[in-house]
Design a protein around this nucleic acid. Structure first.
Lengths: 197, 197
DNA sequence: GTCTATAGCCAGATAGAC
DNA sequence: GTCTATCTGGCTATAGAC
């Protein structure tokens, strides 16, 4: 592993758990097992190091979302595949959603980069497809944007607010993990049951 | 308005938008129109000022949740009342959910205070009621905890990640607001449709 | 490329006049 | 109770030896 990779991995770990403002460059250096000066040698400053981490995190999540949103599957199949693959992925990378959400919320400047990215999650095709399947009588008449928001909410929320969810429902770490495994199919079933005629 | 109130209101505004780590005491003092030294006179330090703000935010949300969770209504009625009243409230206080979620995520120490609080959102009675209504054949057989998580997800997610939601679906501030108004009834309808026999 | 040492700044907190 | 002035520590960033 190159020094740059060591730094990047350490930075990802610290940034993703503490956020930009609360992260100290010293802590990243310690985690990487190198000196603080090397951080500035490899990445010009804290902002640029953070941006590398953020864009990497974003780049991991976005492509697989679009792959599903833009496939030739039916809406029901897309819902099943999305919940399954998204939840599987974030179980392995549990800090990604809250990291991206928190930094998007608190860093308005990132929104533009988010929107300009050609790989950004884009539900345009899915929205049209929902309208079509409503006209065909496959799906109950609802606002397509609400449905897309339903899908995102049901899959992402538990990973965006894990501490709150565990606190309210009263779950150990293990119980939470089990609930998330079950959620891969549960959330798809719920959404499909709600909209199928 | 007393000086303490001026400070508290200013602190709430800054903390809720920037989070604990990114907030500067100077900025709170400026917002309050007083001197930085007064902050330390009224509230011993940054942590205590923050905790006052956090607990107040928490105390605004929790009681109304429990009021609904513990009423004598049916599960369907509770779902309708919860989405209606929660979304109405956070439309007026849009920074509360992301503030509470972010600080709970990044401040593990708060979890204990969160759990010890007698007013914390507690779905225990609702969970039992769901089991009962499943046995009575009113609700389809599902994991009650998944249903509670569905309710929380469908109502809270959009306010926990507003920037991401607006970015992905492509909504202006006004369109987002309209979607949230509609969501008061939409989300309840979706959940009830999914579980009613 | 990697380190030590330090510059330079900024934030939280306090002392003390009024 | 409210202010000005200042201390102290910690943080980002850089200079410079090896």
């Amino acid at each position: 592993m190159t020094t740059e990779e060591k730094i990047f991995n350490a930075a990802r770990k610290i940034f993703q758990t503490k956020g930009f403002a609360a992260t100290r460059m010293q802590e990243i250096a310690d985690e990487a097992g190198i000196n603080k000066a090397m951080l500035h040698y490899c990445f010009k400053n804290k902002e640029q190091l953070f941006e590398a981490v953020f864009m990497n995190a974003f780049g991991q999540l976005a492509p697989q979302i679009n792959l599903i949103f833009n496939s030739e599957d039916s809406v029901f199949e897309k819902i099943q595949k999305f919940t399954e693959s998204y939840i599987s992925f974030v179980i392995e990378n549990p800090f990604l959603p809250q990291f991206i959400i928190q930094e998007l919320n608190s860093n308005p400047g990132f929104v533009q980069k988010f929107m300009q990215n050609p790989n950004r999650p884009n539900p345009q095709k899915l929205l049209l497809q929902i309208e079509k399947e409503i006209k065909l009588g496959i799906i109950k008449p609802i606002n397509p944007k609400q449905l897309v928001l339903d899908i995102l909410s049901m899959t992402i929320f538990a990973f965006a607010a894990p501490v709150m969810v565990r606190g309210i429902i009263g779950l150990s770490e293990e119980e939470f993990h089990t609930l998330m495994q079950e959620r891969k199919t549960h959330s798809a079933n719920q959404i499909i049951n709600a909209i199928k005629k």
